[in-house]
């Protein structure tokens, strides 16, 4: 089996005072063994909710996975008991969060925190676990791991802490690693270090990575495939090259052209007007229709079908319908052209 993780028509809703917020609406995704997939989108697009629903980390009281299945090696995670899920979490699928400061326990030594998962999931003895923890710290590039294993998180700098978080996530050799904005809280030079590390680790360990980010630069750096999310749905997915060099969805065009390019002359940025849709009352048709400069009457009331551009490149946009007018993406969206 090639796909290690498969999401089929996943719908996630939150129950709030004002009503039901449909945060994720019919998401289909798959992750192949050892590949790295990026989910890109703005805040509120549903990218974090999607990842948390895989880990079943959403608050049970206020949220529910309304429909769909999440298959991990053929098992539907939505149907597992909390007990069974605990076994998978941290050992088969693990997660890195945005803020390294809050994802470590300040009262425990770094070594203990790494060993915790090892002893729980792999039944290692204390000495074996310690040895493995030292190896892990070495793997993520922390100098003097034998000494630093006894230190507390506050004795580490931001970048070093994120390395520790990665070491903890990788402790049990997970098959899937979900990284939720792993570099957003870090400075550019530290971000570069962490991205380098993650790419390196992926080659060494063969772990499949789901990278959740809003930064297209990070995506280009790290992932082989991209899924672009907007308004709780996936609007475009394909290999990184396909999405960056041959984008088909106007939202992807907008994203690519609203980023200034370091090596282009000063021009006005192509901003996407307006604000993302309110998922309390999601639009009936295409979620992007209200902000789309190419919107047609059909877009307002009808959800576009997913069209295959190539076998790997899929887009949900009415512009790809044969009856739609031919539209060229704006010049600023052409990454290759600007080079």
């Amino acid at each position: 089996m090639k796909n290690i993780l498969e999401l089929n028509n996943v719908n996630v809703s939150f129950h709030t005072f004002a009503g039901e917020v449909k945060a994720v609406r019919g998401v289909n995704l798959h992750l192949e063994k050892g590949e790295s997939l990026a989910i890109v989108g703005e805040s509120g697009s549903g990218k974090s909710v999607t990842s948390k629903s895989i880990m079943r980390l959403l608050p049970e009281k206020t949220s529910e996975i309304k429909e769909g299945e999440i298959l991990f090696e053929g098992r539907d995670l939505t149907k597992l008991s909390n007990r069974e899920m605990e076994k998978i979490r941290g050992s088969e699928i693990s997660m890195i969060f945005q803020d390294p400061m809050t994802s470590l326990n300040p009262t425990m030594t770094v070594g203990k925190q790494i060993m915790e998962g090892l002893r729980k999931h792999q039944n290692l003895s204390k000495n074996e676990a310690k040895e493995r923890a030292i190896n892990l710290l070495k793997l993520v590039g922390i100098p003097n791991p034998e000494l630093r294993i006894n230190e507390y998180p506050h004795q580490f700098s931001g970048g070093m802490r994120q390395r520790v978080v990665i070491a903890i996530a990788l402790a049990c050799n997970p098959k899937v690693l979900i990284a939720d904005e792993p570099t957003t809280a870090l400075d550019v030079t530290i971000q570069a270090q962490i991205l380098d590390l993650m790419r390196d680790l992926q080659q060494k360990t063969g772990t499949a990575i789901i990278l959740i980010t809003h930064d297209l630069g990070v995506v280009a750096n790290l992932s082989q495939r991209v899924a672009v999310m907007y308004g709780g749905t996936i609007v475009e997915t394909g290999t990184t090259d396909e999405v960056f060099y041959n984008p088909k969805h106007p939202y992807t065009w907008g994203l690519l052209s609203s980023m200034p390019k370091l090596n282009s002359a000063d021009k006005e940025l192509m901003a996407i007007p307006g604000t993302p849709p309110n998922l309390l009352n999601p639009p009936k048709g295409c979620p992007f229709a209200a902000r789309c400069p190419y919107a047609m009457q059909v877009c307002v009331d009808n959800m576009p079908d997913v069209t295959d551009v190539t076998s790997t490149h899929k887009t949900a946009c009415w512009l790809l319908d044969e009856r739609a007018p031919q539209v060229e993406p704006p010049e600023a969206a052409l990454v290759g052209g600007a080079r």
Partner: peptide, 22 residues
Amino acid sequence: AIPVPDPEVERSRERIILEGDL
């Protein structure tokens, strides 16, 4: 260190990675 939204550039780019922290 700035990641550029261009996969080919990213693949071929040589970075100056600063060691250590601030």
